[in-house]
Nucleic acid binder design. Sequence first.
DNA 1: CAGTGGTCTAGACCACCAT
DNA 2: TGGTGGTCTAGACCACTGC
Lengths: 238, 238
Amino acid sequence: MPKSPAPLYEQIRQLIVAALAAGEWRPGDALPSEAALAARFGASPGTVRRALDELAAEHLVDRRQGSGTFVSTHAAPREPFRFLRLVADDEARGFSRELLGCRRVRATAEVARTLGLRTAEPVIEVRRLLHRRDRPVVLDELWLPERQFEGLTTEVLEAHAGALYALFEARFGVHMVRAEEKLRAVAATPEAARLLGVEEGEPLLSVERLAFTYGDRPVELRRGLYHTASDHYRNDLN
Amino acid sequence: MPKSPAPLYEQIRQLIVAALAAGEWRPGDALPSEAALAARFGASPGTVRRALDELAAEHLVDRRQGSGTFVSTHAAPREPFRFLRLVADDEARGFSRELLGCRRVRATAEVARTLGLRTAEPVIEVRRLLHRRDRPVVLDELWLPERQFEGLTTEVLEAHAGALYALFEARFGVHMVRAEEKLRAVAATPEAARLLGVEEGEPLLSVERLAFTYGDRPVELRRGLYHTASDHYRNDLN
DNA sequence: CAGTGGTCTAGACCACCAT
DNA sequence: TGGTGGTCTAGACCACTGC
């Protein structure tokens, strides 16, 4: 408990996040203007501006001079793979996707704990490959609470052309805000080796990702195996 | 070339960075107050404040209410390993260091190109191990332009207790501002296996880091091999 | 207590976008 | 041309630090 109340711009920021979580404005929508929000929250325009600037820094909203402030969306043409840090050594871009499977399973103890579910609660498991220049480079396996992703099937996935996170927004109203990743080097299992076209035991980069929606609620656990022969995981430190 | 000149707060930000690069204020020093800087640059306090806020967001300065704005330093007690993202699975903290060697060599073509030097220009090569609970977890190899690090020897390294980057600040006036890392999974070479106490061919996380000082000038190339059995590389995405 | 950064307000003017 | 966000200013008041 803080001694003094949070500053007004922070309170306003939280109110806007709550409105986003409640779906008052959907990804891609315009928010009300600064002046309108100032009137709504009874604050001066400068204070609302500060709240919006913080939200823009967290990539929750997207500010465009002359046109307005918009809810961020993974469907934006600029960043179809905003959270994927794997880049080709020669800077080549883009992947093609191959769906391996989608089924309803019971959460293992670890998946349940990580996603904040009860053990054995139903989850949807998706497996897929990403190819670069027709060579497999990523084997992804991901788990989603069925409660929030009811109706996600192989057919739905096959029918959707854009990024996975864009599908989650459009069809299930779940927008991914941020993620935490844990990286390790591991040896390829026989199955991973077969799917990625490498030798068994060959080093692969293991990437475990926990993705969060508004309000820091975890909604996706993902395990990726990256073949880093002519690609690498890029990270900027500051 | 931008059509319109950069905004005033950005010009002021760049002037402050230039002053930092010139050593007008050293790491740990206090900058002049907002009001004093406003007078110096002929701008209003609000504009100077914005420039300082941006510098704080980049971790170039550290703002402390009631006492002032200070030049960031790697000697700060809070973050002795600010750029090291390797954390123990059980959240244990801290490493002990073991120096393996420090010698003057000629830059390979790749090292020279990356650091912006001429081929075969002299560089200082340092090799060391980091241990967690008396077990080796990181094998580091790094190269520094001799021009900027003249006098860096085994003795100097042995005599210094704090972080490497703190030594670079205190002794050579080089402050590391940001870095870019490229990660891959690789197989342990015989030498790496021996030093890290693992089997030859075992998967290791390879981390290649290029570190920059003020003005985006590259000054250190580092290759790390991380043993990720009970540690992992942590990354936050947003 | 003096000096510092942190918050909040109010308003002027500009640059950009859509129509 | 009207509405949007972006810049810049000016000043009041508060919270915190260190002497």
